[in-house]
Amino acid sequence: MCQRDRSCGNAENQAAEDQRPGPVENAEGAEAGRLFLEQMIVHHQGAIEMAQTEVEDGANEAAIKMADTIASSQSSEVQTMQDLLAGM
């Protein structure tokens, strides 16, 4: 789970951050699309984790509501991206 000092992330998230921009810039066609989707999934998973922390620990109702919306929408987007990857 994310820490309140914003030390969010996991090994996969950091690995995706470390890979940018090289692999995507050097890839073409389907490989570029695959790399994009893989990195965006990790990025979204980090956002979901941060949003869930806000929902669980937040004090501002507006921020909690926004975080809940983010977690829901990003979860849906992750599923869509996973489906796209499976079809590649």
Score class of each variant (00 low, 15 high):
E49T: 13
G87K: 15
I48P: 01
M88Q: 14
A71Q: 05
T53G: 11
A59I: 03
T80S: 09
A67D: 03
G22V: 08
Q79F: 02
M81N: 07
A59D: 15
Q14I: 05
H44K: 06
S73G: 05
F36S: 14
Q14A: 12
G33E: 15
N13R: 11
E54L: 06
Q52F: 00
M50D: 07
V42D: 14
Q14L: 10
R4D: 12
A62Q: 12
A11K: 12
C8S: 05
A67H: 02
G29V: 12
H44G: 09
M40H: 05
G58L: 06
V24K: 08
G29L: 08
E77H: 05
S72M: 09
G29S: 09
A27F: 02
H44V: 06
I70W: 00
A62E: 14
D18N: 12
E56A: 15
M81W: 00
R4K: 09
E61L: 05
G9E: 08
Q3L: 12
C2T: 09
E38K: 06
G58I: 03
A63C: 10
L35Y: 03
L37W: 05
L35W: 03
S73T: 09
N26V: 02
V42I: 11
A51K: 02
A51D: 05
I64L: 07
G33A: 13
V78K: 11
M81L: 11
L84V: 14
Q79D: 15
T53M: 08
L35P: 03
A16Q: 10
S72Y: 07
G58H: 01
D18E: 13
L35K: 07
L84R: 12
D83E: 15
A63L: 05
G58S: 07
I41M: 10
